[in-house]
């Protein structure tokens, strides 16, 4: 734990300027993850800039039928919003599957997608971790991998000493739903505003596992937009875990089925980022959405999946579990004759 300065600027522009000016500054919103990290020494900022009261708390209708979620709207608030519950149920379900009531009251739309991995080695400053301390190595490879990635990792068993190795997963449920919904992230940075498609917000470890997203230093999420869905679209979120509540996903599935039979699919608990199953979506494009078709599509998606050995038999179980969970989730969204 290390002392830091705390600032509460007057508006978002000032907040962005403050953070941009200090290389070791961070934004604070709900604090449900950052405050833990400050205590544990996982985050060691010099400056904490509190934006909780600066960004919008509102959830507002967009002219095209979409919805804008202000960055400071809480997870509880969005999950309870009748518009979200009726038109984007996958998001309401994902939010309610996350954390606890108390945490959802604090966690925000802007903060939730930016929470860090729950990899136990990332959270323990006494163990090497490329994400926390670039170049120090990856303790997770061959260790406790139950909550770790099977997709987006190198084909062979990664080298734990290599600086690019990271098999962490992104823990957010909300982010999986937003990836399936093709949400748009509105960002304010030192260079002005830009919009990032949600499926492109998070990155794979690449050559720098310390970076979770494509946001540059000083860039702040001000809102997330939910695009309108065709009338009659059905969606659902299914989270699989040993404990019935207050546990991160072993795997999770966000599925959206449009009236013309198009499936949008995102997976959680399996990769460094919310995993949009683009390969499966491609395979299904133009096909009738039957159980068999979905089974084949998810098999194609999982063809490159790489189980991670480790304590308590590793995480190879996730690969069949993903397939089974996708099938079960989509089954619930199909008209009777196809299921």
């Amino acid at each position: 734990m290390k002392p830091f300065a705390y600032a509460r600027p007057g508006d978002v522009a000032e907040a962005v300027r403050d953070v941009a000016a200090e290389p070791n500054a961070v934004f604070l919103a709900g604090g449900t993850n950052l405050v833990d990290h400050l205590r544990l020494g996982v985050a060691r900022p010099d400056l904490v800039v509190d934006v909780r009261t600066l960004t919008s708390r509102e959830v507002t209708d967009l002219p095209d039928g979409g919805l804008r979620l202000g960055a400071a709207s809480t997870n509880s608030q969005v999950a309870a919003d009748p518009r979200v519950r009726e038109r984007w149920p996958v998001l309401a379900q994902a939010l309610l599957a996350g954390a606890t009531g108390q945490l959802r009251n604090m966690a925000t739309t802007g903060g939730n997608p930016l929470q860090r991995t729950r990899c136990v080695y990332f959270q323990d400053v006494t163990t090497p971790c490329n994400k926390r301390e670039p170049g120090s190595g990856c303790s997770a490879v061959g260790g406790y991998t139950r909550y770790h990635a099977v997709l987006g990792t190198p084909a062979a068993l990664p080298d734990p000493t290599a600086p690019e190795t990271c098999i962490a997963t992104h823990p957010s449920d909300m982010a999986v739903a937003l990836a399936a919904l093709d949400a748009q992230v509105r960002v304010l940075g030192p260079a002005g505003e830009r919009t990032v498609p949600f499926p492109e917000l998070h990155r794979l470890p690449g050559d720098d596992p310390s970076r979770d997203t494509v946001l540059e230093h000083g860039e702040l999420i001000t809102a997330i937009d939910l695009p309108a869905l065709p009338a009659g679209t059905r969606s659902a979120y299914r989270k699989v875990r040993d404990r019935a509540s207050y546990a991160f996903a072993l795997v999770s599935v966000a599925a959206v089925v449009t009236p013309d039979g198009e499936l949008r699919l995102a997976l959680g608990g399996v990769a460094h980022r919310p995993w949009r199953a683009t390969r499966a979506e491609e395979v299904l494009r133009g096909q009738q959405l039957t159980q068999d078709a979905v089974r084949g599509a998810i098999a194609a998606e999982l063809a490159a999946a790489q189980p991670q050995p480790g304590i308590d038999s590793g995480n190879g179980f996730k690969i069949p579990l993903v397939a089974r969970t996708v099938l079960a989730t989509v089954r619930g969204l199909l008209p009777e004759e196809h299921s």
Binding site: R118, Y121, S139, G142, Y144, D242, R243, I311, D312
Partner: peptide, 28 residues
């Protein structure tokens, strides 16, 4: 639910907090 996942490489419980060491909750 409960298991202290032992990491023999470093000699400690890997999941050493209540976020990761799961205890049955009300919903269970």
């Amino acid at each position: 639910h409960e298991t202290s996942a032992w990491d023999p490489r470093i000699g400690q419980v890997a999941n050493h907090d209540l976020g990761e060491y799961h205890i049955t909750v009300n919903a269970d």
